[in-house]
């Protein structure tokens, strides 16, 4: 007697979220991307096909970053000093989405100028991060949101102590927000509730439950993502959002990637190890339910993209 394949039937699904708007949709993107929509644990196509392919974002900065590993300067080179050039190179490297990180040196004017330049240089949908300080984030993101009105940009990041201003400007200008919480299922859900209580529709929120790098707490991020996905499938509306995580940022912070000298011989070749660190961090998160992974090295992009392709093809 043939075995009955055990299939879970879930009452809930992840919301499909569309980032970026084409001319027809009121923006200027070459195409928009849609993520989410799943009704199964990651890539269990035998239960139900995964409706939207998870995507890869490449992180670029408004100014040449001082603290990035020299290994990252090799592939990006001079383009790192010019966000528009960088954006083009990232697109060529296989990015589906761009993450533009503003810095503390930015002024509202320079931020708007950079965002416009990046939007002009590449047709990819865009995520814009403030520099990560509440006041500065609000100061920069509001004019950016106004300048990019209609583009369906993802504005980040909203945190539990600073979400009102960013959510308000996202609502006023037709954008999305990234809701970031520190590796806890409940905190993630709570921030989604706070944001949706302000009236932003759920399909304009992408949640970032945060992760650690391989060796630096990835297991917490991994399990939080699995738990969020399970809760969503079980019907918890406040967790039914696509997830965006930053394995590139985390992995390139790790000593294993950052440092080439004075490390144990057992760690092996620096460059190959560094790319492995980012790739495996991303891969584990893809397996636990990431819809967007933000990466830094083109080789990692290539490998993770191929893996997602294989997972989607089954």
């Amino acid at each position: 007697m043939p075995i009955e394949i055990p299939k879970d039937k879930w009452p809930g699904s992840i919301k499909a979220v569309t980032i970026g708007a084409t001319a027809a949709e009121g923006g200027t993107r070459a195409k928009s991307i849609t993520i989410g929509g799943q009704n199964t644990m990651p890539y269990l196509q035998f239960e139900k096909p995964t409706p939207n392919t998870p995507v890869i974002a490449i992180e670029i900065k408004s100014r040449k970053p001082e603290d990035w590993s020299p290994l990252l300067e090799k592939p990006w080179g001079e383009a790192m000093a010019d966000p528009a050039e960088w954006a083009k190179k990232a697109e060529a490297a296989g990015a589906d989405l761009l993450v533009l990180a503003l810095t503390l040196e930015d002024t509202p004017d320079s931020a708007v100028k950079t965002v416009k330049a990046v939007l002009a240089a590449s047709g990819l949908p865009l995520v814009v991060w403030g520099p990560g300080q509440a006041e500065k984030d609000n100061e920069l993101l509001v004019p950016v949101a106004e300048a990019a009105k209609g583009e369906k940009v993802v504005l980040g990041v909203c945190e539990d102590k600073n979400y009102r201003t960013i959510v308000a400007t996202a609502m006023a200008n037709g954008h999305l927000v990234e809701a970031r919480t520190p590796m806890d299922v409940n905190l993630a859900k709570q921030l989604n509730i706070l944001i949706s209580d302000m009236g932003l529709p759920m399909d304009r929120i992408v949640m970032d439950p945060t992760t650690g790098a391989l060796g630096y707490g990835i297991e917490y991020g991994y399990s939080v993502m699995e738990r969020l996905r399970l809760a969503a499938l079980q019907g918890d509306a406040m967790t039914q959002l696509p997830m965006m995580v930053t394995p590139g940022f985390e992995a390139w912070k790790a000593k294993e990637s950052k440092v080439g000298e004075g490390v144990p011989e057992a760690w092996g070749d620096w460059e190959a190890r560094a790319v492995n660190w980012e790739t495996l961090t991303a891969m584990a998160l893809v397996e636990s339910g990431a819809d967007v992974v933000v990466l830094r090295h083109p080789e990692s992009v290539k490998r993770v993209k191929a893996a997602i392709g294989e997972l989607m093809a089954a």
């Binding site: 299922v185 409940n186 859900k189 709570q190 509730i193 918890d236 406040m238």
Partner: peptide, 16 residues
Amino acid sequence: YDAFMSAMFLPHTDMD
């Protein structure tokens, strides 16, 4: 700890 974090909200993270 999980239950505590879940309850650190008004009235609770799980409105159901």
